[in-house]
């Protein structure tokens, strides 16, 4: 088999994952895109392992390790997303702007001011909520 086929497929899957991570708003959809990127890397590892005929099978062993780490990552990521949802009532990554710099007042904002204002209001409500649950 031509080695370019799995390599190009892995590249395209990785770029689809990049698009998903950058363009999606729901945190769980972002995690799905991360899974796509990890799978692209796995395909590369398997293809190069089969190509090189490695005697210690580094590629396939690393693929197994990556799958394991991806399982751990998805578990922890979903736990964090659920915690954020429980505290904020939303899992939109666009609205989690408490650590962002406040927008400049003179700037010609395109919806940024209202968005971060809503984020700040959410932050105070979430603080009260966190104090109530703590």
């Amino acid at each position: 088999m031509h080695l370019a086929y799995p390599a190009v497929l892995a590249v395209l899957l990785f770029c689809v994952g990049v698009y998903g991570v950058l363009a999606r708003r729901n945190a769980i959809l972002v995690l799905m895109s991360v899974e796509l990127m990890l799978n692209a890397v796995n395909l590369n590892l398997v293809a190069f392992d089969v190509w090189l005929r490695d005697v210690v099978h580094s590629g396939q062993a690393l693929t197994l390790f990556t799958i394991t780490i991806a399982a751990a990552e998805i578990g922890l990521g979903l736990a964090i997303v659920l915690l954020v949802y429980r505290n904020r009532g939303s899992s939109d990554v666009d609205r989690l702007t408490d650590l962002a710099e406040p927008p400049e007042h003179g700037a010609p904002g395109h919806g940024d001011g209202t968005a971060s204002g809503a984020g700040a209001a959410d932050g105070t409500a979430a603080d009260q909520n966190a104090e109530a649950t703590a």
Binding site: V8, V11, V16, Y19, R25, V93, D94, G111
Partner: peptide
């Protein structure tokens, strides 16, 4: 479901795809 910077994301992904496909091929 998609945020407002969808077109920026599309541009970044397309540029990465073109570059990487060219390099790999």
């Amino acid at each position: 479901a998609d945020s407002e910077n969808r077109w920026v994301a599309l541009g970044v992904a397309a540029a990465a795809a073109v570059t990487l496909v060219w390099v790999v091929v």
